[in-house]
Design a protein around this nucleic acid. Structure first.
Length: 303
DNA sequence: GATGAGCGA
């Protein structure tokens, strides 16, 4: 007979269960319970206090006695603080006014509350969450949802775009690689108005294709400095935020070379100055990632 | 509070 750790089983006939010794496996929870006296429950007494005495093996294989004292729920309620009892007498408000909720302390509100979850410094940005059933359907692959304002995929429709009001001025002319008044006035060489210009040939397009980040090093004109960025805001995030105003030639976020942590500021270069100006006017003071952005003209970099 | 890289003639 296998006895683990040299322990001897209790006398079988003393145990209330009629389990035969050999029927229990070592990895069975009952295996060890079988070696211990059954738990004893005392009470509850007149104060609702209940004691449970159990025997267990600790991690070192030693037998220990565990006493748990608890108070039954009903009597615990009677011990609520005076303040808590007082609060229960408050008149109902909000949705609770219209419902018979009695003494219930909480109820489910139908009010829509948008919470922006703060992130611990250095933690990873969360995956985009689907805010509604439609988005869930889209994510399941039935529809590919792409916002025409900010181009974010599978998150929301154009009408629900968080940047909708920001982009109101550009939204109507916004086709992949949005032509602004200025950039439209300066089409790619050889292009006549009304002719199709492939995305890669449009003003502001990068050679690597429109899905890539704008070129890091070309064009220091129309440079906009963005400060007070949260440290997990990266270049793609800035691009998402600023591209609604017009074609962007470069996005840069200053990063500590040693730690790789964002230094909290960056630069966005617009193809056209007018777009940059509108971005500054609209986004300066804009709440982003729980911080208030500062967006202003950048002074040219000292070389 | 704050103004960005690195290549190699």
């Amino acid at each position: 007979m296998a006895v683990v750790d040299g322990r001897q089983p209790l006398q079988q006939q003393n145990h209330p269960n009629k389990i035969r010794w050999g029927e229990l496996e070592e990895d069975d929870a009952d295996y060890y319970a079988y070696l211990l006296p059954p738990p004893v429950v005392i009470g509850p007494d007149e104060n609702g206090v209940k004691k449970v005495i159990e025997y267990k093996f600790n991690d070192d294989g030693e037998k220990v006695k565990v006493t748990t004292t608890s108070r039954t729920r009903k009597l615990a309620r009677a011990r609520l603080s005076k303040k808590a009892l007082e609060r229960r007498k408050w008149p109902k408000f909000g949705d609770a006014v219209h419902e018979e909720v009695g003494n219930r302390l909480t109820m489910i509100s139908t009010e829509e509350i948008i919470l922006e979850r703060p992130r611990a410094p250095g933690s990873k940005a969360e995956e985009a969450t689907a805010p509604d059933a439609l988005a869930t359907v889209a994510k399941a692959g039935a529809v590919l949802m792409v916002c025409r304002i900010c181009h974010k995929k599978g998150d929301h429709w154009t009408a629900q775009c968080p940047y909708k009001d920001l982009a109101a001025a550009t939204a109507d002319t916004f086709v992949d690689g949005p032509p602004s008044s200025e950039s439209a006035a300066a089409p790619a060489p050889g292009a006549r108005s009304g002719t199709y210009v492939p995305p890669g040939m449009r003003a502001g397009a990068t050679s690597a294709g429109e899905r890539s980040l704008p070129d890091r090093r070309r064009n220091d004109e129309n440079s906009v400095r963005v400060t007070n960025l949260s440290e997990d805001t990266r270049e793609p995030d800035l691009l998402e935020l600023f591209r609604t105003f017009g074609p962007i030639s470069r996005v840069y976020v200053a990063v500590d070379q040693k730690t790789g942590v964002s230094r909290g500021f960056g630069f966005v270069n617009f193809v056209s100055r007018g777009d940059a100006e509108r971005a500054i006017n609209k986004l300066n003071g804009y709440g982003y990632d729980n911080l208030i952005l500062r967006v202003e003209w950048a002074t040219p970099r000292a070389n």
